[in-house]
Computed example of a mutant assay.
Amino acid sequence: MPRPLIELCVENTDGLLAAQAGGADRVELCASLLEGGLTPSLGMVREALRVARVPVFVMVRPRGGDFLYSEVEFAAMLEDVRLFREMGVPGVVFGCLTADGQIDAARMGALVEAARPMQVTCHRAFDMVPDPQAALEALIALRVDRVLTSGLADSAVEGLDTLRTTVEAARGRITILVCGGLTPDTIAPVWRATQADELHFAALIDTPSGMRFRNPSIGMGGTALEREYTNRVTSEALVRQTIAALGFAD
Score class of each variant (00 low, 15 high):
D66E: 13
I140S: 07
G101K: 11
E79M: 05
T98C: 13
V92M: 06
V178W: 07
M128F: 14
G88W: 03
Q102P: 01
R124A: 06
R143H: 15
L163G: 10
Y69N: 06
F74L: 14
V60Q: 04
G65E: 07
G159N: 09
S155K: 04
V147N: 03
D127F: 02
E137M: 09
R171E: 14
T162K: 11
H123R: 07
F67W: 12
F84Q: 12
D66W: 10
P117R: 12
R173W: 05
D145F: 05
F67L: 11
R146I: 04
E73I: 13
E73K: 11
R107K: 15
V60M: 02
A76Q: 15
E158A: 15
E168A: 14
Q102T: 05
G65T: 00
R143Y: 06
V81R: 10
T162F: 03
L83F: 00
D100N: 14
V144D: 05
A138C: 02
Q133P: 01
D154R: 12
L139R: 07
Q119T: 14
D154H: 02
G88Q: 09
I103L: 11
T121C: 09
A99C: 03
P132I: 05
T175I: 01
V89D: 01
D145K: 08
D154Y: 02
V93S: 08
A156F: 11
A114Y: 09
I176L: 10
V92S: 06
R107W: 12
D145Y: 04
T98M: 15
A170F: 09
V178R: 05
A156I: 05
T98D: 14
L111C: 12
L97Q: 11
G101V: 10
G88L: 10
G91A: 04
V92G: 03
Q133S: 03
G64L: 11
T175H: 00
R164F: 09
H123S: 07
L78I: 00
R146L: 07
E158H: 13
A106D: 15
E71Y: 08
R107N: 13
R63C: 07
V81Y: 04
A99I: 07
M87A: 02
